[in-house]
Amino acid sequence: MDGVPKIQLSGLKKAFGPKRVLDGIDISVAPGASLVVIGGSGTGKSVLLKTILGLIRPDAGSIRIDGEETTSLDATGRERINARFGMLFQGAALFDSLTVWENVAFGLMQGQGMHRAEAKARALENLASVGLPKEVGELSPAELSGGMKKRVGLARAIATRPEIIFFDEPTTGLDPIMSDVINNLIVACVKDLGATTVSITHDMHSARKIATHVAMLHGGRIIWTGPIGDIDRSGSPYVDQFIHGRAEGPIQMQVRA
């Protein structure tokens, strides 16, 4: 990797009580790369994303965005940095008091102060780019199916044309065909924006489709990282066990607490 990485984490630690969720994370993401973080349930993948976004304060370590340290930022600086991020949440996290188009236009109107009429036009364009007709814009989020919610969430995440986009389990809970639709949309949108992305998933099919690089999180550490093409010859028994979905191997799932 040449130049300044878009995102650089070093020695990142976070514990909740006695449970060390992140135990020294070191990784960097090059501009335009698409990193997919894989790992079992409860290994701290979501915590990792929320820590980078500043929603969770790390106990130790550094997070650099374009070389700028963000862990010591005040509220104003944090807002400035967050304006460059977009995120698709696991449950889409649409605002249910607003209509679909107001959700998509939210970042444009609140964050960038765009005029309502202009923001609506942009929101409808974004909805069209995720394959939703403009009639959907007038519905409320409660009237949408799971796949449609995800697509609206994606439209909202890309509406402000962010430089960095996070995807939190983009295909979880969707049928295989809709998963593939979402994967294609992600690839197309990211290509279109030229954004750097970090996704977390345990869906290997999705990972192979959207990743340029993969990192595996286990026990609070990154135990393997490399280009997606190398994942089948990682040489790591942990990665092999995960990508083939075997119950037997070095990773022991805690069945009983």
Binding site: Q90, A93, Q110, T160
Partner: peptide, 21 residues
């Protein structure tokens, strides 16, 4: 409900301060 469905986190990622909003 907004908290448990991550809508408050979503506000932050859309450059909106949840206290103010």
């Amino acid at each position: 409900t907004m908290r448990v469905t991550e809508q408050i986190d979503a506000l932050v990622t859309l450059s909106t301060n949840p206290y103010k909003y």
